[in-house]
């Protein structure tokens, strides 16, 4: 599924990576636990999280996450966005909560890590 479609269904704002919306993602890792993301993310996954510190982007980079969505209307700080830009990880932000974001994307055919 294209990031651009995900952006539309979750009514996301694009915080960085506007020019990467054509990228495809197939699997999703959703967690507020960084070690959990490192343990379960498939390479190239979309990461959904409510954690907005620099380590969230660090974790995404290390887990080879392809793109990130911050949920519940959360916004990462400038440092996090800067690191995402450097690491070529597009960041989207939605006001939708974790359960609904995951449910909507799952219905559209995206898969988890199991």
């Amino acid at each position: 599924m294209k990031l651009a479609e995900i952006k539309d269904v979750l009514r996301c704002e694009v915080l960085t990576g506007e020019d990467s919306l054509a990228m495809e993602v197939e699997t999703v890792v959703a967690s507020d636990g960084m070690s959990e993301i490192l343990a379960f993310a498939h390479p190239g996954a979309l990461m959904i999280t409510g954690l907005t510190n620099v380590q969230s982007v660090r974790t995404a980079d290390i887990a080879n996450v392809r793109a990130m969505i911050y949920i519940r209307g959360k916004r990462p700080g400038d440092k996090a966005i800067e690191l995402a830009r450097k690491s070529n990880i597009p960041i989207l932000a939605t006001s939708v909560g974790m359960f609904d974001a995951c449910g909507i994307l799952r219905e559209l055919g995206l898969k988890g890590g199991m």
Binding site: D32, G33, M34, S35, E36, L38, A39, T49, L51, N53, Q55, S56, T59
Partner: peptide, 15 residues
């Protein structure tokens, strides 16, 4: 609150 403290770090390292 920062997303750590799941008790998974050392097991992740070992794995």
């Amino acid at each position: 609150e920062m997303g750590f403290g799941f008790g998974m770090g050392l097991p992740n390292i070992k794995k």
